[in-house]
Design a protein around this nucleic acid. Structure first.
Length: 102
DNA sequence: CGAATGACAATCT
DNA sequence: TAGATTGCCATTC
């Protein structure tokens, strides 16, 4: 398979993210044993096939910000998805990591 | 095999 | 405080 175990592992973790909670790229990277591979997690997401049905919208920045626009058809769309999942947003447009952040 | 890339994160200005 | 820069590391060319 073209995808290495690293990507597979990322997909597995993202797939296991419970509804109503959000993970950060750094957290996922830490689970993989590479706390500095946050970029790799993001890279895996960019290459993540939709057949996987990955809730990548639950993966956000360490600051609680959403991924750059153009990913889910607009970050506004992603924000609405998270709100439906039960994620609470702050007035500054960031996710309440103190509540959902691990 | 070597260089470039990137959905991050921390640090510096 | 906000914006710009550097470091990191697996994948891709």
């Amino acid at each position: 398979m073209s995808k290495s175990n690293f990507f597979e592992k990322v997909y597995e973790i993202v797939e296991q993210i419970p509804s109503g909670e959000v993970y950060t790229y750094g957290q996922i990277a830490m689970m993989l044993g590479n706390p500095r591979a946050a970029r790799i997690v993001g890279y895996a997401m960019s290459s993540a096939p939709r057949e996987r049905n990955l809730p990548c919208h639950r993966v956000v920045y360490q600051d609680g910000r959403l991924a750059p626009g153009g990913i889910f058809g607009g970050k506004e769309n992603q924000r609405r998805l998270l709100e439906e999942e039960g994620i609470t947003f702050l007035n500054n447009g960031r996710i309440d990591m103190d509540e959902h952040g691990w």
